[in-house]
Amino acid sequence: MPAHVLILGGTTEARRLADDLAARPGVRVTTSLAGRVARPGAVAGEVRIGGFGGAQGLADWLRTHDVDALVDATHPFAETITANAARAAAATGVPAVVLRRPGWRRAPGDQWYDVPSLAGAAEALPGLGRRVFLSTGRLGLAAFAHLADLHFVVRSVDPPGPPLPPDTELVLARGPFTVADETRLLRAHRIEVLVTKDSGGEATAAKLTAARDLGLPVVVVRRPPLPRGVTAVPDAAGVLHRLGLGPA
């Protein structure tokens, strides 16, 4: 049984996993947060804030703190962190598990336009609508900064930094949001097209239902691939199984 588990967190699934592990006798759990949100929600167990300094820094931390298992439960688009975690685990021999909620699936009535990147989303937008709900997080908005002819509504927990599109309206709010919430926002701002990353899960899926109900096109940025040789489990139960822990 692992005695010290390090969770690379920041997602709802990471928080739930920390709750489960922290409640187990003999298991020490530490969750590492990147520090990009000013007021993160409460997390069970120990918490550290900030980066490790790349794969080597993470490997050093695993050794120094006697970590017995590493769980990468970061956002599906945290490509660099996932790559560093895989390298650190290989260098130290610490067992590692990647926790990734499944991606979204189309439903009847969806008008989705799949793109491989934020740059691809920016390229697709001019032909789809002028008033854009940009729901991709506050990082990466620079990809849309050159689109001066479009009006963007950007929702974020904390204010984003520059560069931003010239015509940007900021909505500061923390989810989760219901379908009714998202429908009101889309209608109030007269949104014509939604842009989102394929984060997956139920916590942020309401905007997709609202867009479908309103007949709006959705530009979906697909996830980056996992590092070669790395596979993911879809839920906390899969992580617990990999760690040799049964139900609480």
Rank of each mutant, 00 (worst) to 15 (best):
A173G: 08
R36C: 00
V157I: 15
G244R: 00
A91E: 15
R212I: 11
G201C: 05
L170G: 12
A90N: 02
L170I: 14
L17E: 09
L245C: 04
A38M: 01
V230A: 01
A89M: 09
P102K: 08
V219G: 15
R24Y: 05
D158H: 01
P225Y: 00
F144R: 02
P227L: 07
R190K: 10
T136W: 01
R242G: 07
A18L: 03
V71G: 08
A14C: 00
D19N: 12
V221F: 07
Q56N: 08
G10H: 05
A38R: 15
L118K: 13
G246F: 13
G215Y: 12
L164Y: 08
T209I: 15
L62I: 13
G53K: 10
G229H: 09
L21Q: 09
L172H: 12
A124T: 10
E79K: 14
A69W: 12
L99I: 13
Q56Y: 00
G215P: 03
A88L: 07
V71Q: 06
A119H: 13
V220W: 00
F152A: 07
V132N: 10
V43T: 15
G140Q: 03
R24G: 00
G127P: 12
D167S: 14
R223I: 03
L21R: 11
D110A: 09
G10V: 12
P162C: 00
A173D: 10
V179I: 14
A211C: 15
A3R: 15
D114K: 03
L208Q: 13
E46Q: 13
S117H: 03
E13Y: 08
T64H: 09
F144D: 02
L8K: 06
R36T: 14
D198I: 11
G215A: 05
A69E: 01
G45M: 10
L243A: 13
T92D: 08
K207Y: 04
V233W: 01
D198F: 05
H151F: 08
R24A: 01
E13Q: 12
R228L: 13
W61P: 05
A124E: 12
R138K: 12
A232D: 05
D19L: 06
A211I: 06
T30F: 07
T12F: 02
G127A: 15
L194N: 08
G244I: 13
G35I: 01
V37R: 04
L141S: 06
A142V: 06
I49H: 14
L240M: 13
G10D: 13
E79G: 06
P247E: 11
V132C: 10
P217D: 10
T82E: 10
A203I: 14
R222Y: 01
V98T: 15
S117Y: 05
L216V: 11
L164Q: 04
P234H: 06
A205H: 14
D167I: 02
